[in-house]
Amino acid sequence: MSVSTHSVTLLTRNGCGLCTVALEQLRPICADFGVEIALVDVDEAAATDPGLRAEYGDRLPVVLLNGREHSYFDVDEPRLRADLAR
């Protein structure tokens, strides 16, 4: 398996049940492509990036692929797998 040039970030919040589910869905997908998942808590990040919480805070979890919004609330597994394969 080659090393992926993609990055996957999961925007979360402490105590977010949907965020926990999304992380569990992302783990096997990203493992298949050799991608590490970066976790960003939008509340903790607000001190240095208040725009992050302002933009995404009301629709977490959000999956970012290569820094761009890919999906929110639910992980779009077929689409994410197709995009990671590129």
Rank of each mutant, 00 (worst) to 15 (best):
T5G: 14
A45M: 05
T48F: 09
R27S: 11
V8Y: 05
G17V: 02
R53G: 00
D41C: 06
T20R: 12
C19F: 04
V42I: 08
G51F: 06
R53C: 08
A85G: 14
R59G: 07
C19Y: 02
L52D: 06
T20D: 15
S7V: 01
E69W: 05
G57T: 03
R86K: 14
P61Y: 03
R86Y: 07
L10Y: 06
C30S: 10
R79N: 13
R79H: 12
R53L: 15
G51C: 05
R81F: 09
L64E: 10
H6P: 00
E36K: 14
L65Y: 05
T48H: 09
G34I: 03
S2Y: 08
L52T: 00
I37S: 07
V21H: 14
S71G: 08
N66R: 00
L11R: 01
F33N: 01
L52W: 01
H6E: 01
L39H: 09
R68V: 08
L64M: 08
A54C: 02
Y72D: 09
R13C: 08
R27W: 11
A45S: 10
R86P: 02
L18Y: 14
R81K: 15
C30H: 04
T20P: 03
G17P: 05
G17I: 02
E69G: 04
A45C: 10
L60K: 01
G57E: 08
L84R: 10
V40S: 13
R81W: 12
T12E: 06
G15D: 00
S71F: 10
N14D: 15
R59Y: 12
E69M: 12
R13E: 15
R59W: 11
S7R: 10
A45Y: 04
H6K: 13
T48A: 15
S71M: 08
A45Q: 11
D32I: 00
L23R: 13
D74Y: 13
D43P: 00
